[in-house]
Amino acid sequence: MSELLRQLGRTGLQALGGLGRAHLLLVGILLGLPQLVTRPRLLLAQVFNVGVLSVLIIAVSGLFVGMVLGLQGYHVLSQFGAAQSLGVMVAASLVRELGPVVTALLVAGRAGSALTAEVGLMKATEQLSGLEMMAVDPIKRILTPRFVGGLISMPLLAALFSAVGVLGGWFVGVGLLGVDEGAYWGQLQAKIDFREDVVNGVIKSLAFGFVVTWISLFQGYDADPTAEGVSRATTRTVVHSALAVLGLDFVLTALMFGN
């Protein structure tokens, strides 16, 4: 019994310790921002790694999600004679929820795990220690650009996902199922509110970008500097990011649309 309690206590303390280290790391990363302003070129490679390399998977996923929404939505809505509202349904689902959330999950899997592996390997191969011995702060030099790169890329990717998805829904709804083109776009524009829907979606994806890159970088930086440690950290990145994104999504949705 006491052994069980001790185990629980130890697990709790470890979790708290990890949380504390993660926040200290975040402070370190944010303190690197002024330095990053003087070296914007460092950012370029990171926007490339997180953003450009994720474009294909994001665009293809967005297209299919939009097409599926078009199909499913049409069958449900046509039962109520409301197929005209297909555009609203597709766009609202994408812009409010699926765009930010699915993008964040895909980025966590595609770019987040890569970030963790990269940073973890740099730690395992003593590159981070090496930088420190060259009197270069590895947090400011290595982590901050990656963090900002992820933060910038996420909303752009989410917007791309939603836009491609709306077009996918249009292709299925208007092109294949014969929903009126004017109704599709007209209802869309009438019902989707810029501030309420689009801006909130962007805020969501910014929050997700923050959390996903933070988790990825922390897991890499905190990984055991061994091959096994790095691979475990990579798994943790995907699991923790997915849970954090979905949990945070609920909180944000409750705050934004809950009243």
Partner: peptide
């Protein structure tokens, strides 16, 4: 400390080159 480190060199086991 960073200023002092610029006057120290260290050769790591793995080389620690930026890959």
């Amino acid at each position: 400390l960073y200023r002092l480190r610029t006057r120290m060199g260290m050769l790591f086991q793995s080389g620690a080159l930026l890959t």
